[in-house]
Design a protein around this nucleic acid. Structure first.
Lengths: 159, 159
DNA sequence: TATTGTTATACTCTATAACTATA
DNA sequence: TATAGTTATAGAGTATAACAATA
């Protein structure tokens, strides 16, 4: 039950006297929150243009990046209970975007794999995130590299 | 119907020969997506620790940052239909975290305002985003300023 | 016994449409 | 007529608990 308000910066990072004012965690949190909201909105719109929800697009993207995955592994990447994946994969499968394949080594496991249509869908959705692409295209090459580095350091281990 | 895969960088930014390899939009999109997922997960967990959902915490945060807002303005900040706010605000109000107050100037409008308990809740939730605070605390002062600047440039106009 | 995937249930979020009370 | 808020409805995501098949 922490009674401490927003600013929780470690005292070890006391800025040197005369330096420009430090950016508080509270301010960074606001900026992160706003950019997250923008990204989520852009992604939801791009998915909706293909008749898909955000979560469905997210599942396709996970499979696109990491290859076939078990229901359990998919749920782990969503950080949600495994039972939730049943419905999400059901809807994707009924539209022919993914397939459920029995694992050759463990008969309990079902591996979910993208179909050709699924690959096309996820690539179109990613390309259709116009606001995000526009914002990224406005950055210099150096800024892009810096952003990539900072985001990678921010991303949690489970990513 | 763009057939183009992930990389949609404008040709105007062709990197000079001999420069370090450019960071593609596809790579940046992955990094953004991963950090967004981490932030969402951290925020959802912090809200759940107070018995609140992500959307409820988001509404409290909007009111905390911007002061009282009409149902319509709240819905605009959520980029969702106004009818959805009724239930969200209902649940927050039933727990005493917000109040609905009639607008003095327009009898159709209801302004939603944080109660003292609501202020405490949103501040505790923000402070309870441990993974995010930890990741931010690991950044140098210069990196923090750079991140703040880049995120602000990424955030959409509607914020 | 433990694990994988599923089913059943309840709650929340979301979009759409229709309604009311104001303007 | 147009707008603010609400209600009704249906679809989707989420957590919990319980279950059958398999390890």
């Amino acid at each position: 039950m922490p009674e401490t308000p927003g600013t929780t910066r470690s005292a070890a990072q006391t800025p040197p006297p005369g330096a420009r004012p430090a950016v508080s965690n509270a301010l960074l949190l606001d900026a992160l929150w706003a950019s997250m909201a923008g990204l989520y909105s852009d992604l939801t719109a791009a998915a909706a243009a293909h008749g898909l929800t955000y979560s469905q697009a997210k599942a396709l993207n996970v499979l696109h990046r990491g290859g076939p995955a078990s229901m359990r592994a998919l749920a782990a990447s969503f950080r949600c209970d495994a039972s939730n994946m049943t419905g999400i994969v059901d809807r994707l499968e009924s539209r022919g975007l993914v397939r459920r394949e029995p694992s050759p080594t463990d008969r309990r496991v079902k591996n979910v794999a993208l179909s050709e249509e699924g690959v096309a869908a996820v690539e179109n959705i990613r390309a259709g995130m116009h606001a995000t692409h526009q914002a990224l295209d406005a950055l210099s090459g150096e800024d892009r590299a810096t952003l990539q580095s900072l985001l990678t350091r921010l991303a949690p281990p489970a990513g």
